[in-house]
Write a protein that binds this DNA or RNA. Structure first.
Lengths: 200, 200
DNA sequence: GTCTATAATTCGATAGAC
DNA sequence: GTCTATCGAATTATAGAC
């Protein structure tokens, strides 16, 4: 292995940053190599030389380490808030997650990445709380649905109500939802419609 | 007005159905007029003749009446379940909502439609429950985030856990979330981080 | 109404000079 | 390493014959 930083690494990093920005704001199909190269103030042919193809460029740009931190260190009842805060922070940190989300809607490779990143990462947390793996996978899916839904409405669609909320407000509203998905007893799978709790 | 059905209406309907399918499975950019025309077994030039442009075709295909039913007739505590069930049914009814969602990620016109459809429709329900309009708008946004997040994971990304769930299971899990967003007291906006409830 | 032909762009990717 | 030139394919959209 050679870990001496080459001169081309700065150029590569500039391309990746520009790519994240374009994929995040335009999605995979509309983000053109020409536009990315222009943003990075470089020749379009260089992008191809460095990354080989648009597809490979996307994979490199969407590379992300989503390591959820000390999951075992936080008290059980604060898990929902911890998770929501972590994701909101990651989303607002740079454009990587947004690039992934926006591209995943129309690009199958991006959707694959999204599935593995969110599915596998969140399910790790869920499995540490629920020994029933089959149930833990569902809990993780439900958590992902709320996290991704918030990100979709707040960062991609820019729904005014969601986009105007403060970070803390989003966390305060969503944390109980995630907490419930992670820890609540699963709803009984009754055969006939809606089980209405009897008033006593 | 002329309400005699023209002979071309059947052709128009076939084009719209094919367009919804393509927009739903490919998104706006990748759904080509050629492919839509092929699905409808018609000449591509006819699509242009009938709808003028791809953009106008999309608008016509994404036209949908999202009227939420008898909101005042359902008991207050069943509102969450009613809403979730309504949206799941609408999503699985045809490809219209899916076409709208998948296209909204990369097409601004589609995003506009999504914002107005979900924002304005759900906020009507929220306002009937909460006189504070500013708060009602936020409640509607939160509901939309969970509904759209579920649809994104289940129908667009096809997350295995969400896609494998039965309709009733999805409703049973999500209904309490939506119910809480609509009716729960808003979280206190404390200045300093997370308010941890004191154990007694 | 229907279809052929094609205009006018735009894009990813390649070849090759320097 | 860098850039010019360009290929080949695909797209929306238009013009016009029948």
């Amino acid at each position: 292995m050679n870990d001496t930083p080459r001169r081309s690494d700065a150029t590569k990093a500039a391309i990746l940053a520009a790519a994240r920005g374009r994929f995040a704001s335009d999605g995979y199909e509309r983000a053109t190599i020409r536009a990315i190269a222009a943003d990075a103030a470089i020749d379009p042919a260089m992008v191809m030389r460095y990354f080989g193809s648009k597809e490979k460029l996307f994979v490199a740009a969407a590379e992300i380490d989503l390591r959820i931190p000390d999951v075992s260190a936080v008290p059980r009842r604060a898990l929902g808030e911890t998770l929501v805060r972590h994701f909101v922070d990651r989303w607002e940190g740079d454009g990587t997650l947004n690039a992934l989300l926006r591209s995943a809607a129309t690009n199958e490779a991006a959707a694959d990445r999204a599935r593995s990143i969110f599915g596998e990462q969140i399910v790790t947390v869920a499995e540490s709380l629920d020994p029933d793996r089959r149930l833990a996978v569902r809990r993780a899916g439900l958590v992902a649905s709320q996290i991704l839904g918030m990100a979709l409405c707040r960062y991609v669609l820019r729904f005014p109500p969601l986009a105007a909320m403060s970070k803390d407000e989003v966390i305060a509203w969503l944390a109980p939802t995630v907490q419930r998905y992670l820890t609540a007893k699963p709803p009984q799978r009754s055969g006939a419609g809606k089980p209405v709790r009897r008033r006593r």
